[in-house]
Write a protein that binds this DNA or RNA. Structure first.
Lengths: 130, 130
DNA sequence: CGATAAGTTCAAAAATTATTGAACATTGAA
DNA sequence: TTCAATGTTCAATAATTTTTGAACTTATCG
């Protein structure tokens, strides 16, 4: 039961990804914003750490939401040192639910208008809110 | 504040339909089953009453879930006598979130396998469970 | 080594959502 | 008009989800 940052986190296999779980995971403003930002700025995985999203909530809340997205099979989380590198499981989702992610992302764009001016422009900052 | 069965129920205008609300409404097994059945057997709107779905839950629970779907803008509910005729707001959803509903419905089919053998085969029965 | 940064875990509290049963309104039909 | 069918409403409860803060682990940087 000892937790290790170097252990690989659990990710559901593609067949284990279910529609109700995915929909429930995305039916939340914070998590929708996370995947929208991931889709837009995640080409270079190196920047997509948990703290990149600190503008969306507290450290603990993000840990919770990111866990939900991971367990739903929507994102992949790769431990790299003390960080977590996040990426969308685009091909797995496309295989499982063809066309679904694309339609979500297209429609979600208008929801996160100023996402370009969030954090990550100075990756080495202490980004805690308050 | 008097409630009348003949009053028109509230339905959001197409522009008022938002993605997080729609996703949250569909992130529930019961409601996903409802829209899946509506999509499959709803060509003829006349059969699509609330009680058609009684196999999915109690009368009161269905009222609740159908209200959620209506307020999210996913279905339209037309009072007809003492009944409610339900239909998917296909074109509104397609306008708002292109491709979304189709991908959901295609993926939801495998979730409601025996839906053909539910109720509605004897429309005039008292269909209360227990 | 000591400090800091990045995230996690846990338990408690807050908030939201879902279910139930009883009572009610409305309509259609005998 | 009385009855049965169809749904709604309300209040209470149950269940689930989210948020918070404190303590902790691990890795990295001087």
């Amino acid at each position: 039961m000892t937790w290790s940052m170097t252990n690989t986190l659990h990710h559901p296999a593609p067949e284990e990804i279910t529609l109700p779980t995915v929909l429930a995971a995305l039916g939340d403003e914070t998590r929708l914003a996370i995947i929208s930002m991931l889709a837009r700025f995640g080409e270079d995985e190196r920047n997509m750490t948990c703290s990149y999203f600190l503008s969306l909530g507290s450290k603990t809340a993000l840990s919770y939401h990111i866990g939900k997205l991971r367990e739903a099979g929507i994102i992949h989380v790769r431990p790299e040192g003390t960080k977590r590198l996040l990426s969308l499981r685009r091909t797995d989702l496309e295989t499982r639910f063809p066309g679904f992610l694309a339609s979500i992302l297209a429609s979600a764009e208008q929801l996160t208008p100023g996402a370009a001016s969030l954090s990550s422009e100075f990756p080495g900052q202490s980004g805690l809110q308050s």
